[in-house]
Design a protein around this nucleic acid. Structure first.
Lengths: 218, 218
DNA sequence: CGTAAGGTTGATAGGACTCAATTTTAGTGG
DNA sequence: CCACTAAAATTGAGTCCTATCAACCTTACG
């Protein structure tokens, strides 16, 4: 957990302070919401096991997947600006999260400058990730989006010490489509096409990347 | 400037500390870059006058507009996570910006908890805005995107005390298209269509919103 | 005032969506 | 543990929206 939540730049003394702060964990069943858009914000979270999706709704009620969080990644930053969550977070499989009370975290950030640094970088990294996602939605074709998404998940798996070539994506095709700005049918067709071309090997939610360079230059 | 940069929750004592921090301003000519992707990050900025766009590049060099900043809005947060700017910021017209050195700002955030609060909310708001933009790109039609963009600019103008019904958009149709994930031709056609329907009145970059409710339900 | 950049509009083509029919997977309960 | 069933995934056919290519007009800057 230490690596996962707040990896770098903390002394072990500081780490123990952090650990007093992470006062609790919580398990979330598949399909259950950790928080919903409109809920009061009082904690941020780190996915300890499993995976989650974040959703945002239009005025008309249509929901779109705005993010995927794998084990070790942070969740809940969407509530900071308004003290109310802007997104909902739903478990893609039975999962557990660490709960980090925001008030206590703020205090710690004031006491320990390396914690402040971490916090800023966490927020800043989310900003950059989302900007990259905007670029993807704004200027890539369906093929390019799917390839780019697979490569992103692969890379994030690698960073967490798992296989970058083979993984289980717990999202449905509909979730993927919603996240990538296309229909579930197009997602399915694109994955089939990649398989025929020998770029990947899919069996439902299990995905193996066969030709990494090939996928990169889709 | 006081309202613009850091409006709420600061005592006047705190404000004067902030003002010692904003040590300088800078003017940026139309078309000139305030910073470029890859530049070392050491300051955040607030647009004092004029307007700017942010750009991000794909590996292949294609650039996309990822943001529009009007007077009073913050700029440069894309550099926090990696100490290097992820975007470029280019002036849409002759503009001036306040320079806020990040190191000094961090120190101030540790001393004054309301400053820390402001900083977190600034970053959090950017995260939520970008998520909303992702939604727009992922699930709206061309018409809906243009309408949504015009309403967004209108609202931001209102917040800054300018007219919400009439404004000058200094972006080109190409910039707008890039930002909205469509071609400049489609932007132009959509604006013409809105004009024919009596929703707006355009003359080049000058835009007047004639039928606000109508535009909302496009 | 000239000229290049920006904007508009038209015709055509193609990529992704929609609707629909099956097949496959996975979660539930006997 | 296996059968059952609803959810998820695949594939096809036809259509529509938006991109592309092209010509022309307008604006603004030097």
């Amino acid at each position: 957990m230490r690596q996962l939540c707040m990896p770098q730049g903390l002394s072990s003394d500081e780490l123990s302070k952090l650990e007093t702060l992470i006062c609790s964990a919580r398990s979330v069943q598949r399909g259950e919401a950790l928080y919903r858009s409109g809920d009061r914000f009082d904690s941020i979270y780190a996915v300890r096991s499993g995976s989650m999706k974040t959703l945002m709704a239009h005025r008309d009620g249509r929901e779109q997947v705005t993010g995927l969080r794998l084990a070790g990644e942070a969740l809940g930053l969407d509530g900071i600006s308004e003290d109310v969550h802007a997104c909902s977070a739903v478990a893609l499989e039975d999962s557990t999260v660490c709960i980090v009370p925001y008030g206590a975290l703020k205090r710690l950030c004031r006491e320990i400058s390396s914690m402040q640094e971490r916090m800023h970088k966490l927020l800043g990294a989310q900003i950059v990730r989302e900007a990259a996602q905007m670029m993807m939605l704004g200027s890539l074709s369906a093929d390019e989006r799917v390839a780019s998404f697979l490569l992103d998940v692969s890379e994030r798996n690698a960073q967490r010490g798992y296989s970058s070539a083979e993984f289980n994506l717990r999202m449905t095709r509909e979730d993927m489509g919603s996240y990538l700005g296309m229909t579930l049918e197009t997602v399915s067709r694109t994955l089939s096409k990649f398989q025929k071309r020998g770029l990947i090997d899919t069996q439902g939610k299990h995905i193996r990347i066969v030709d990494l360079p090939g996928l990169r230059q889709v």
